[in-house]
Amino acid sequence: MGRGLAPAVPWVATAARVLLGAVFLVAGLLKIPDPAAAVRAVRAYRLLPEPLVEPVAFGLPVLEIAVGLALILGVFVRAAAAAAAVLVLVFLAGVGSAWARGLQIDCGCFGGGGEVAAGSTAYPAEVARDLGLLVLAVFLTLRPRSRLAFGGRDVPPSAPASPGRTERTEPTDAR
C-alpha cells in the first residue's frame, strides 16, 4: 500500500467491518426462526456427536449475532474480528469435510441447510465466500482501527496525516 493511500485504511476497515458484520448478523438472525431446521443442518454434517448438535445449533446464531453487532457498531473490533476469523475457519473445515466426504448437503450458512434436493450442492461457492470473509476478518484483526466506530477505536478526524505514526504515539487500547 502506497503512502498516499494510507489515510484511506481506516475507511477500508470501516467498509470491511460493516460488510463482515452484516453477513454475520444476517446469518445468525436467519437461523433463529426455525430451530428444528438449524438442528438438522448441524446434524447433516455428521461431524458432531448427538449431545453436541443442539448446543451448537442454538448457540452458533447467538455468537454470529454478537460478532456481527460488535463489528457493525465498531466495539471490541479486534476481538470480534478474531472471533469471526475462528468461526469462518470452523465453517471452512465443516464445509470442506462435507465436500470431501461427498455429502449431499447445503451448508446451512444462512438458515435452512441439510435437506436440499440431492445434486444441488454448492461447495465451491460456499468455500469461496468463506475465504473472502476470512480475508476481511484477518485484515480487521490486524488493523481494527476504523472510522465511524463507537468503541474508542475511531481515528480522530484531526489525526496527523500518517496513521502509521499516530498508532504508536496515541494511547491505544487494543481490546
Binding site: G59, V62, A66, R175
Partner: peptide
Amino acid sequence: RRRGILGGIAAAVAVLTALVVVFVVQDRRT
C-alpha cells in the same frame, strides 16, 4: 483501559446470558 476491561466483562456476560436464554427458548420450541 479500565473502561475497556469493564466493557469487555459486561459484553462477555451479555453474550453468555444470551446464549443461555436462547438455548432454553429454542430447546423448548423444538
